[in-house]
């Protein structure tokens, strides 16, 4: 369909810092919203030309495709250590690691905690959707009690595999981190809150304030076997009970 554009005003477009690459995320997944928020933040701060994205292993492994900035694909769990290496090599670069719950809070446990404990001047985006999305829906360290996954077909049994790990709260016990917050994307208000948090987390780095971590509760309609709308409701009603929203540390 041909649309006459002469008298139309463009009110919404892709952030400059995002590429036109086709998304590999499933319908209803929150990664897309979050990617847009990060792109918008990079635009607003005018830092695209000195930003380096550290892509993880997992659904967001292709993160290096989404942003119009330099990027490094890291080994599973090592994004915070790779970010450390980049930032120490050139402190003028703005380095952000984008990591899922398996990457950040399971296989990368040591790297995640120690980068935070050194107070590395980096920004970590930690996407918590309580499941291993890319490999087919296995249990994550953050999976809820009784949550059915392909490796907990009868539901997560705490007697066998423990409880969902509140990783941000663990890191909040450390003295070094500057800013730790947990946000969500299940409605407009939370999306706006997340925008604000992400912007703070990048600004902290620009202003050399130190380590910032934004945990974002996300959905996985595919592996949760829920509709996108039911998934949003699940985050609002159930997930936030286990992972309460809000700032855990703010030492700016």
């Amino acid at each position: 369909m041909q649309v006459e554009t002469a008298d139309m005003v463009k009110v919404f477009s892709r952030p400059q810092s995002l590429t036109a690459a086709k998304s590999t995320y499933c319908p209803g997944c929150h990664h897309g919203i979050l990617t847009r928020i990060i792109g918008k933040t990079i635009d607003e701060l005018g830092i695209a030309e000195r930003t380096v994205c550290i892509a993880p292993v997992g659904c967001s492994v292709f993160a290096y495709n989404w942003y119009r900035c330099d990027a490094i694909q890291a080994a599973h769990g090592r994004a915070s250590a790779v970010a450390t290496g980049v930032k120490r090599a050139d402190p003028n670069l703005i380095v952000f690691a984008y990591q899922g719950d398996g990457d950040f809070a399971s296989i990368g446990t040591a790297e995640s905690i120690h980068a935070a404990n050194r107070g590395e001047n980096i920004t970590v985006i930690f996407v918590n959707n309580q499941v291993y999305g890319m490999t087919g829906g296995e249990m994550a360290p953050t999976s809820l009690v009784h949550q059915k996954t392909t490796t907990t077909p009868a539901g997560r049994d705490p007697a066998q595999v423990g409880y969902p790990i509140r990783f941000s709260e663990m890191i909040a016990q450390l003295d070094a981190p500057t800013y730790i917050t947990r946000q969500a994307l299940f409605d407009t208000r939370r999306i706006l809150d997340t925008e604000e948090a992400i912007k703070k987390a990048f600004e902290n780095q620009v202003n050399e304030k130190g380590y910032s971590l934004v945990e974002v509760l996300s959905t996985c309609p595919t592996n949760w076997r829920m509709s996108p709308i039911a998934s949003n409701k699940h985050v609002a009603d159930v997930v936030t009970e286990v992972f309460p929203l809000g700032d855990l540390v703010d030492r700016r």
């Binding site: 550290i54 490094i72 890291a74 080994a75 090592r78 250590a81 790779v82 970010a83 450390t84 290496g85 980049v86 930032k87 120490r88 090599a89 790297e111």
Partner: peptide
């Protein structure tokens, strides 16, 4: 992994 980042 830090070496990997610094080398990159």
């Amino acid at each position: 992994s830090m070496v990997y980042g610094a080398a990159a």
